[in-house]
């Protein structure tokens, strides 16, 4: 049987979900035999090729992240949101109760350690979106594994179900938001 092609990305996040992913322990060995990671933050492959499963960690907070998730969505058949940021907006979404200008001003000018700060305007720096969005507000998402970070059990469950050809819904007993 051909290996299932998987691509993972991390967007606005702390990478904790990918770390938690590594906490599935020996299941990772089984997994390696079943899936092929076509793109992930670890493989350092930057472009997208069509895959079966796309996994997104993190929320969408700037133009680049929006492009990345749209490209991933375009290239995958099933998109899984991994972690609270991707599912709900998470910690990154804390900025949503402020307006964008204030957030930038705070970050680049007002922090006590900043000397003569200015807000970066270079086109190379992706512009912030007005708000931080969970993945499903930008693209269609097929399944979700919430958690900050998700329980390794939940990740394992999600992947096992996907490999079995089912769309997973994390059961109550291993679902956690924090």
């Amino acid at each position: 049987m051909a290996k299932v092609k998987v691509a993972t990305v991390w967007l606005e996040s702390c990478a904790g979900c990918h770390m938690s992913f590594l906490d599935v322990d020996e299941f990772i060995i089984d997994l390696v035999n079943l899936v092929e990671f076509r793109r992930s933050p670890i493989t350092d492959i930057k472009d997208f090729t069509p895959v079966t499963v796309g996994i997104v960690e993190g929320s969408v907070g700037n133009e680049e992240e929006k492009e990345v998730i749209e490209a991933l969505r375009h290239n995958c058949q099933i998109l899984m949101a991994l972690g609270d940021c991707a599912c709900f907006g998470g910690v990154c979404a804390m900025r949503n109760t402020f307006n964008k200008e204030d957030v930038l001003k705070r970050a680049y000018i007002d922090t006590p350690s900043t000397y003569q700060g200015k807000i970066p305007l270079s086109p190379g720096v992706p512009a912030l979106l007005d708000k931080v969005y969970p993945a499903n507000q930008i693209v269609k998402v097929d399944c979700y594994v919430p958690g900050c970070p998700p329980e390794p059990e939940a990740i394992k469950y999600g992947l096992t179900e996907l490999l079995a050809g089912r769309i997973p819904v994390v059961p109550s007993n291993i679902m956690r938001f924090d």
């Binding site: 709900f88 998470g90 910690v91 819904v169 994390v170 679902m175």
Partner: peptide, 25 residues
Amino acid sequence: LCAYCVASGDCELQSLAYKYQMDNA
């Protein structure tokens, strides 16, 4: 957002969300 809520783990809303498998909004 439970990740930074003081009541996480002691919240009826959260418990119900788990119960109803609310994995996204």
